[in-house]
């Protein structure tokens, strides 16, 4: 049984990296980072001047704030929209392409368990998402530190927060780890949508709509107290909590736990839906 599951997972990985879409997506993410770095190179100084203009009237600044840490933080902000969008396109394509080309029907005729088949897709989707976030962290880190060096990280999160270089490095690393949970949430959601809609373009449109609505709901900060904590949209900025001056580990832990429950619920719903539905 386990051997069969492993074989399906290996096949899924093979199919995923055989798709040109996957390489285009990874290439786009790398290119996006280069564009962000170039933008920072040209405009970073003036943006910082604009943000810190009032402060500069009263203080002399000693040291460089436009450094690798700030650049990694800017790349981290692609987790709001760019990164989940690209991940959703690739991950949903793992099923919709097969459904459209007839591969899915052929595979199902071989007698593979539907549950095991879709569960393997969810497992590969989660691993691929985590790997992509790690790749983004490594590439953005190496490019940013290579060209801009290190220094204190300056972020605006409730107040003007300044973190010393080792602390900044730790917080950025933890933010990427927390970000994996949010990205996995969007990835498995897109795979659930693929299970429901089966058509590539239709799934992309609904997935993009879901992402946009999630971002809008996040900005609205719906709910009070526990309802606010439980609402899925409010959990997707958990990684930002690492940039509060005093890290609230308990709040981050609870948010990530709830997000994990949502992810598990989406995976279970996806498996159930796929198992229930006929393969046309």
């Amino acid at each position: 049984m386990q051997g069969m599951t492993n074989a399906i997972i290996r096949a899924e990985w093979f199919k995923l990296f055989r798709q040109s879409r996957t390489w285009y997506a990874l290439g786009a993410l790398l290119l996006l980072q280069v564009v962000l770095l170039l933008n920072a190179w040209y405009q970073g100084g003036s943006i910082l001047d604009m943000l810190l203009d009032n402060l500069k009237q009263s203080f002399h600044f000693q040291g460089e704030l436009l450094n690798g840490h700030l650049l990694v933080y800017i790349v981290l902000n692609t987790m709001w929209f760019h990164l989940p969008l690209i991940l959703m396109i690739v991950v949903s394509g793992m099923l919709t392409t097969e459904a459209e080309t007839g591969t899915l029907r052929t595979v199902m005729m071989t007698g593979i368990s539907k549950r095991r088949y879709i569960a393997s897709k969810f497992r590969v989707a989660i691993s691929f998402t985590a790997l992509t976030v790690v790749l983004v962290a490594l590439t953005s880190g190496s490019l940013s530190y290579l060209f801009f060096g290190t220094g204190d990280l300056f972020v605006f999160h409730g107040a003007l927060n300044f973190f010393e270089s080792p602390d900044a490095f730790f917080r950025l690393g933890m933010a990427f780890i927390a970000g994996i949970f949010s990205m996995v949430f969007f990835s498995v959601s897109s795979l659930l949508l693929a299970v429901i809609f089966r058509e590539t373009v239709k799934t992309w449109i609904v997935a993009a709509f879901f992402l946009i609505v999630s971002n809008l709901l996040l900005q609205m900060q719906i709910g009070q107290g526990w309802t606010r904590k439980l609402f899925f949209a409010n959990l997707n900025d958990t990684w930002q909590l690492f940039f509060e001056y005093h890290i609230n580990w308990a709040e981050i832990g609870v948010s990530l736990l709830i997000l994990t429950i949502y992810i598990a619920a989406i995976v279970v719903a996806g498996i159930w839906w796929f198992d229930k539905k006929d393969i046309a």
Binding site: S58, H60, F162, E164
Partner: peptide, 13 residues
């Protein structure tokens, strides 16, 4: 003159 390896804010007055 105030010099530091870190980023520091030095009051102008």
């Amino acid at each position: 003159k105030v010099e530091s390896e870190d980023f520091v804010l030095v009051p102008k007055r």
